[in-house]
Design a protein around this nucleic acid. Structure first.
Lengths: 141, 141
DNA sequence: CTTCGTGCAAAATGTTTGCAGTTTC
DNA sequence: GAAACTGCAAACATTTTGCACGAAG
């Protein structure tokens, strides 16, 4: 069992955001889901949880969370964004193009590459996106 | 000087696509531009070149090209797609968040990682996306 | 009580589709 | 001439915005 030093309220206070029911529910959902979620999924969860919320509000909340570095914003070549809780480790995703399964992968050793880029190209890397698309183990059978 | 074994007409015939003026112009533009372009940029170029084309047609052409592997489809966290001619080398991009400059970078050594993923996770990688966001040399000054 | 957050409606942006007419091979 | 391609208009999906009301600290 891990020691939880922060709850959602603290998390929000840390970035000067008020702890509203909608925000708490969104954090709950993002934490519960073990994959990056899109806005439709978020909305349908909120509706099912009897939280009546407008999509505009959801986008505004996600924007605040993103800017406060509480969540990450990802693109899986779908023409829309997905969001996931910011974790301490730098991980990426394996996206199965057949069933849509999303696996995590860590330790891609990309920091080395970033340093090299900085040295060779004088480009200061702030963040990167790295996703793999293919066929998962189950779909290969 | 490099030997050009293929022109645009051949390129299209190779993937069973008819060589129409619009398609030739789009290939011209994508070849001329040294950065991944979005649809608005493509449309404005075509208009300036007195090629009257509907956006629906542009999207349909890009779709065909993408499926024929003539072009690549990229996302730079902008909520839209960008396209570039498919090159033989596997390169990625450094995107300056301040001025929008896009530099190429090669030899990221990601094939090694893909093989590892295949072995460890039994996930068959077909393609990947890797982009770096940060500040370019000019904007750092 | 002031600032921040939300709902509602509308719009902006990017992309896709149906269908009738046109072009390419 | 058949199949592929295109224009037009409309629809669709995602995301953003203005404004008035409501809630949190």
């Amino acid at each position: 069992m891990t020691l939880k030093t922060h709850n959602h309220k603290d998390e929000l206070r840390d970035v000067a955001l008020k702890a509203t029911p909608a925000r708490m529910a969104i954090l709950d959902f993002l934490e519960k889901e073990h994959r990056p979620v899109d806005v439709p999924a978020l909305l349908s969860y909120l509706t099912k949880s009897d939280i009546d919320i407008d999509q505009a509000t959801v986008y505004r909340i996600l924007d605040k969370f993103y800017k406060g570095n509480i969540i990450k914003r990802l693109e899986f070549q779908e023409g829309k964004f997905r969001y996931e809780i910011t974790h301490t480790d730098d991980h990426h995703h394996l996206i199965c193009e057949q069933c849509g399964a999303i696996e995590d992968i860590s330790d891609c050793g990309i920091e080395v590459l970033e340093k090299e880029i900085n040295k060779k190209k004088k480009f200061l890397v702030k963040r990167h996106s790295l996703e793999f698309f293919g066929v998962c183990a189950v779909c290969q059978r």
